[in-house]
Each structure stands twice: as structure tokens, then as C-alpha cells.
Deep mutational scan, measured.
Amino acid sequence: DESNKPILLPNESQSFERSVQLLDQIPSYDTHKIAVLYVGEGQSNSELAILSNEHGSYRYTEFLTGLGRLIELKDCQPDKVYLGGLDVCGEDGQFTYCWHDDIMQAVFHIATLMPTKDVDKHRCDKKRHLGNDFVSIVYNDSGEDFKLGTIKGQFNFVHVIVTPLDYECNLVSLQCRKDMEGLVDTSVAKIVSDRNLPFVARQMALHANMASQVHHSRSNPTDIYPSKWIARLRHIKRLRQRICEEAAYSNPSLPLVHPPSHSKAPAQTPAEPTPGYEVGQRKRLISSVEDFTE
């Protein structure tokens, strides 16, 4: 099969070098950035008060330690540790928490760990991170309901609301924008112990962030949302095809390698009803078989 044979790379090609550099910018793992907010007593309706908090309760602090690993920003190499735009020179604080497994990295933009500057009256330095995160974990210690939209931002799609209760338990629920209701189930609340709260809140936030990324990708319907490693695979396959075309153009005697095509017509299947918005969006999480067989 010609399409699977190794090909020689061009010795000097600026377009090839640019493509390789672009490939280096696509990590081999999925990345997520999640905002974390603490809401104190009497702050449920005040964005400024929430963003001005420099610490929270003892249970909130224990919750943070379970979310991930504490890292010092100045020691991080952005090409190895995903920071979601946090500055490593102290502009966004000294520490944050991050978490990773074999296929993804997540960083938490924690408002109480970011510096509260006197010259920044409206807390814009914090909002440029927190307001651009799709998902926020809100530790609501106010005793009042927290409403979506209290923290203004164009991309605040989903809130994971943590409400501490007695007996070391917590109520965990989801809020989302109306255009996200087909992807996020907000109907079920959970009672979770303090011990298990970081794991549950983190998983709910990661799932909500993946759904938000799919939702946000609708602005470019021709580019369905893939995982990062599938995006790398697609980029490599496009690069291979372009090299083959350039080689055939410079030397017409060489065969032009095309991806294999299936001449056999697909079997006719009964027509199915058109899937609704929710089903269609969830299918976009699934990769096409052509990603692996071309």
C-alpha cells in the first residue's frame, strides 16, 4: 500500500519547517483550565467582593489541597506544564494547583491565590483569567444561592456549585447557560463527603469543560472538536499529503500518493430520524474511523 510507505522529508523547505513548528504547539495530551472561586458570607451577589477574597475557610483550604498538586509557578516550564496563561514571573501569584493523568493536564485558576492589587480596583487582572475559563468551581460559603452570571465573562458556560453542609458533607450541583443544557445535566445534585469532594468536583468540572469545548467549536462548523492527539494525527497526515504533492510536482515521474478510497458502495440502511441538538453535539466527541485508517 503506497499510502503507508515511509517518505523522504525535504531537506530545505520553509513550509515544512513551519508545519513542524506548528505541530510542536499541539500538545500530545488534552488540556483544561478551571476557575475556582470562594464566596464568603454576604458575597453571593457581589463580583468585586468575591474576586477580592485572599483566603477562605478551613474546609475550603482542605478542598484545594485535594484538587491537585501545589506547584510554584516560577519553577514551571510552560512547554511541559500546562498553566492556561498564568504568568511565571509573579504577575498572577506564586502558587497554583494542577492535576494530570496519562492523557490530560488541568490547571486551576484560583482567585484566592492570585494577588489582590490596590491599583486594580475592579480586579481585572484576576478576571482576565477567571472570566475566560469555560467552567468555574464555586465554593459557596455564603449561606445564600449563587446565580450564574454573578461573575461577568463571555465564556462562563458552567458552574460547579459546592455548598458546604453539616457533618462534613457538601451539596454539589451544576448550573449552565441555556445554550449548554443539551450537553450538561443540571437536574441531579449530589451529597458528597469532604473527603471525596475534590475528586467529584474535579471530575464534574473536567466533563463540563470538555462539553464546553465542543459547544464552543460550533463557531467553526468545519472543524469538529477532536482530542489533542487526534489533532496531531490529522496535522501529520495533512503534512504527509502536502509533501507527496510537492514531490510529485517537482518530479512528475513519481506517483502521487493519495489516501486509500473505498470503491465499494456502502450498504443501504433504513433512514433514521434526524438526531436532535443534544445527540449531534455528543457525537462530535467521537472520532471518525477515517482518522485511523487513511
Rank of each mutant, 00 (worst) to 15 (best):
residue 187 S to F: 03
residue 193 S to E: 02
residue 206 L to W: 03
residue 140 N to P: 00
residue 264 K to S: 14
residue 50 I to A: 03
residue 128 R to M: 06
residue 75 D to T: 10
residue 130 L to F: 06
residue 221 P to T: 10
residue 260 P to H: 13
residue 151 I to N: 02
residue 204 M to W: 04
residue 255 P to N: 10
residue 68 G to S: 04
residue 197 L to D: 00
residue 37 L to P: 00
residue 52 S to C: 06
residue 260 P to C: 12
residue 253 S to Q: 14
residue 247 A to G: 09
residue 185 D to Q: 05
residue 279 V to S: 15
residue 126 K to W: 04
residue 83 L to W: 13
residue 68 G to Y: 03
residue 239 L to C: 07
residue 131 G to D: 15
residue 84 G to F: 03
residue 99 W to C: 03
residue 226 P to A: 06
residue 156 N to V: 07
residue 286 I to C: 12
residue 96 T to Y: 05
residue 149 G to Q: 10
residue 230 I to M: 06
residue 106 A to D: 02
residue 228 K to S: 06
residue 46 S to C: 10
residue 9 L to K: 07
residue 198 P to V: 01
residue 195 R to V: 08
residue 78 P to G: 11
residue 21 Q to S: 10
residue 238 R to N: 11
residue 106 A to Y: 05
residue 165 L to Q: 05
residue 35 A to M: 04
residue 259 P to I: 12
residue 8 L to F: 12
residue 106 A to Q: 04
residue 155 F to P: 12
residue 272 E to V: 12
residue 148 L to Y: 14
residue 267 A to Y: 10
residue 116 T to M: 06
residue 240 R to C: 10
residue 84 G to E: 14
residue 97 Y to T: 04
residue 188 V to G: 13
residue 266 P to S: 13
residue 197 L to H: 00
residue 49 A to R: 04
residue 32 H to W: 04
residue 137 I to L: 03
residue 59 R to E: 00
residue 87 D to P: 08
residue 180 M to F: 13
residue 285 L to E: 13
residue 113 L to A: 04
residue 69 R to A: 15
residue 270 P to Q: 11
residue 16 F to C: 11
residue 3 S to F: 05
residue 292 F to Q: 15
residue 215 H to S: 05
residue 176 C to Y: 05
residue 204 M to R: 01
residue 238 R to D: 15
residue 144 E to R: 05
residue 81 V to N: 14
residue 150 T to C: 07
residue 172 V to R: 00
residue 221 P to C: 04
residue 130 L to H: 04
residue 103 I to M: 15
residue 101 D to E: 12
residue 125 D to K: 15
residue 15 S to V: 14
residue 186 T to G: 06
residue 217 S to H: 14
residue 245 E to P: 12
residue 190 K to N: 14
residue 96 T to R: 06
residue 38 Y to Q: 00
residue 246 E to R: 06
residue 130 L to Q: 04
residue 155 F to G: 15
residue 225 Y to I: 11
residue 176 C to P: 02
residue 107 V to K: 10
residue 79 D to I: 02
residue 140 N to E: 00
residue 158 V to K: 01
residue 268 Q to A: 11
residue 13 S to R: 07
residue 255 P to I: 05
residue 29 Y to S: 06
residue 283 K to Q: 12
residue 229 W to C: 07
residue 87 D to Q: 09
residue 122 H to W: 07
residue 143 G to I: 01
residue 204 M to H: 03
residue 91 E to H: 11
residue 227 S to V: 13
residue 83 L to N: 14
residue 244 C to I: 12
residue 1 D to E: 12
residue 79 D to T: 10
residue 174 L to A: 04
residue 250 S to D: 09
residue 147 K to C: 10
residue 53 N to P: 02
residue 150 T to V: 13
residue 80 K to A: 05
residue 192 V to Y: 03
residue 225 Y to C: 12
residue 289 V to H: 13
residue 132 N to V: 04
residue 10 P to Y: 06
residue 164 P to R: 00
residue 87 D to V: 02
residue 192 V to I: 13
residue 253 S to V: 11
residue 151 I to R: 02
residue 249 Y to N: 08
residue 9 L to Q: 12
residue 84 G to N: 15
residue 151 I to P: 02
residue 221 P to Y: 05
residue 45 N to A: 11
residue 7 I to L: 10
residue 250 S to H: 11
residue 17 E to T: 08
residue 243 I to V: 13
residue 2 E to R: 09
residue 182 G to I: 09
residue 240 R to W: 07
residue 51 L to W: 04
residue 156 N to Y: 03
residue 109 H to T: 03
residue 27 P to G: 05
residue 143 G to F: 03
residue 14 Q to S: 06
